[in-house]
């Protein structure tokens, strides 16, 4: 699936969840299911500091594709992190650099993208794009 198709699928899934509590229950469940980041990657270097909640992000580059593992100390953030990873993991740096992340707003969680909320998710998206940019630049040079 392309990044766009992954996002469409998430948006479609959320359309069945009419109440806010159903929506949150689902996100919280995703947060609980998120495969934990390998503890050796849960380092200060991989920590993306938000004002309220923290996110750890680790990137792997294999066969021209990037994959991510992550964790957060807040469960709702973690659920959203899990969705971001589902959408972006397994794609090439170029695809990730070019991708526009629209699903968070579409499912009504845009408050998590507010810069004043600074809860780690927005910083994590920026960090993923930076990784992708770095690997894209590397592959151009090599």
């Amino acid at each position: 699936m392309t990044i766009q198709e992954e996002q469409q699928e998430i948006i479609a899934d959320f359309e069945y969840l009419l109440n806010w509590d159903d929506k949150y229950e689902y996100i919280i469940q995703l947060g609980k299911e998120l495969p934990l980041i390998d503890s050796r990657y849960k380092t200060e270097d991989n920590l993306i500091r938000g004002c309220q909640s923290r996110v750890w992000l680790h990137a792997d580059f294999l066969d021209g594709k990037l994959s991510f593992t992550a964790d957060s100390d807040a469960i709702i953030t973690k659920g959203l992190v899990s969705l971001v990873i589902k959408v972006l993991s397994g794609h090439t740096p170029k695809e990730i650099v070019d991708a526009e992340i629209t699903f968070i707003e579409a499912i009504g969680l845009s408050s998590h993208l507010s810069p004043t909320r600074s809860n780690g998710l927005l910083s994590m998206l920026k960090q993923i794009k930076l990784y992708a940019l770095a690997y894209q630049a590397k592959s151009v040079h090599s």
Binding site: Y24, C51, A74, I75, T77, S111
Partner: peptide, 21 residues
């Protein structure tokens, strides 16, 4: 062991304004 940010967000959805952090 609920993160204050999670609790604050669910309270907000119920119309309850508190501060977290």
């Amino acid at each position: 062991d609920i993160h204050p940010f999670d609790l604050g967000e669910i309270l907000d959805k119920q119309g309850i304004a508190v501060r977290t952090g």
